[in-house]
Design a protein around this nucleic acid. Structure first.
Lengths: 327, 327
DNA sequence: CTGAAAGCGCTTACAG
DNA sequence: CTGAAAGCGCTTACAG
């Protein structure tokens, strides 16, 4: 069997409780015994059993990260890896580990989240998406479990960190207008996602602000985030409307749309949202700073967890800056 | 406090041990009491405490996934998300959860892995890279901890699933030769990675097989996986050699290399390795089926864990097929 | 087919 | 400054 706290206690000639206190670096313990105990831990290569610790202290030092449904788009987009990287950079420094919650459909995802929350597997949750009426976020709220959404939620009971997507929508559109466009297509993802809704609102505000009439036909929600849908959507817009610029909200869609434009030898300014320079030739992109979203989310979650421990149940909101990068 | 097994036992008028047996669906329990207990669990919304279960049973139902050092390249490449997706698809069906092990440098990564293994946080480990002399893999071997490497390891004590990279190197090179190339540059990543070494061997074998002399100057290991390095490396090869084709091993490097070729208006056949169709125009790519690598790795790990429980300590090796896709 | 008891390896008041 | 004891919520022989 593995070496336990008792073995350390025996070797250091103290009681197990003292060993615990040394691990927690309690000021009450004398330097002398601290040293002796640490020495013993070293020679025995002692590492505390996390399951025992979690059970006794009701704290796991793990956070759960909830991914959206298993779709190609999510895994092909640089958002997921970047945000995970941001979260884990900060988490590692705070001695937190990350547990992933995914599943093939909503039922499996919900079951896994329930087991995770009710089974006390984690101290808090980060959701990697903000969506209307998401049963998983609702579960977290109902269970009063410390959580942060990366994206938006309408509930006043949950914390989130997000870009200011309305402003990001405005800024992208304004950029295009300043490039001389006046008939700008807006191609976005699933309408249930707040990010799609908000950027569209920003788009509309910008048109209004510059006294450009809004045309319903220029707007398209592709539903599914795939290259194919991007291609088809671009095609149908071009076939029915005359446009002089495009705003897209997702990398895969952009790729499909650009492929269509290339094939048709149509050259137009195109702007999209991303956190790394897009590979394909386009005019500009709005850097949404995904790494920072992840970092902020973890820091926020830590504060939320603390506040729940104090029975405060605070709710925080932050926006991460975006910036337009001309290519 | 949360509802425990005792509450369920009380409501169902059985002992706690019986509740456990019902959860485990032991055949010894009568259908009648099973029903009563399940009913009680339902009405109380009981979910077992995982920390208690793990402590008592010495089994966590979690596997650890170890990422390489925190580098841009790893997180910008589609390998990471795809392989995670493959692992989690199978894991979810087996009621396993995934814990990520990352860190900013090797020291932090090693500390985290030690805590994870010695602290009994997981039942097994999957390494997402194969590298010479990796201290983390060595730790797993030394601790006799059930592990699978996605990639290769020279140790006879560890299981792995990989592409046949020697053959993949051969096939890519052969493809280029059949396209009429005879002076083929080979641009690859860090030499410590087995994948770089093996594809290069395949490249050399192919040349030999087709009686094309090997030229040292056509080979380049870029060291760092960045677009910039890809660009510079392509540049220096072009400046000193005459080439008529390129084999690259990594997406970011390829992008850099292609950018240089485009700028110079040099048009050459280029082939690379990926698991999704590359965005940039190139001749073909070797699909390494990353999703399948992840799926196989998890299945293998399950077998390894079983074999360790039986004190067999089996060691498995599998190769996942690759396929060349002409674009 | 089921229960009582011991134990998993920690932590946390309580007491001194 | 330190120890003895109880407890966290399960599981697992053992016994009947």
């Amino acid at each position: 069997m593995a070496v336990t706290i008792k073995d350390v206690a025996r070797l250091a000639e103290v009681s197990p409780s003292t060993v615990t206190r040394v691990i927690q670096d309690k000021p009450s313990i004398s330097q002398a015994t601290k040293k002796r105990v640490r020495q013993a831990m070293e020679t025995l290569n002692y590492h505390p059993n996390f399951n025992a610790r979690s059970l006794a202290s009701n704290k796991t030092n793990v956070i759960g990260v909830v991914l959206p449904r298993d779709t190609d788009a999510f895994y092909q987009n640089s958002f997921f890896p970047e945000v995970i990287r941001g979260i884990s950079q900060i988490a590692a420094d705070h001695h937190y580990l990350i547990q992933l919650c995914t599943g093939k459909d909503d039922e499996q995802r919900l079951r896994i989240l329930k087991d995770t929350i009710l089974g006390r597997r984690v101290d808090g949750i980060i959701f990697l998406y903000g969506e209307t009426d998401d049963p998983l976020v609702e579960l977290a709220i109902e269970q009063e479990f410390p959580s942060v959404v990366i994206g938006k939620s309408l509930s006043p009971f949950i914390s989130f960190v997000d870009n200011n997507n309305e402003k990001a929508g405005f800024d992208a559109t304004e950029y295009m207008i300043q490039e001389g466009c006046s008939s700008i297509a807006f191609v976005s993802g699933r309408h249930q996602l707040f990010v799609s809704q908000d950027r569209l609102i920003g788009y509309q505000r910008a048109l209004e602000h510059y006294h450009i009439p809004f045309k319903e036909g220029l707007i398209s929600h592709v539903g599914e985030f795939t290259r194919e849908r991007g291609y088809q959507t671009m095609k149908s817009i071009i076939e029915r409307e005359t446009i002089d610029g495009v705003v897209t909200t997702d990398a895969l869609i952009t790729e499909g749309a650009l492929r269509y434009l290339n094939e048709q030898k149509i050259s137009l300014p195109v702007i999209t949202y991303d956190s790394n320079p897009p590979l394909l030739p386009m005019t500009a992109y709005v850097n949404i700073h995904t790494l920072e979203l992840g970092r902020s989310a973890f820091q926020m979650l830590l504060k939320v967890i603390d506040s729940y421990n104090d029975k405060q149940m605070m709710c925080y909101r932050t926006f991460v800056e975006h910036s337009i990068v001309r290519l």
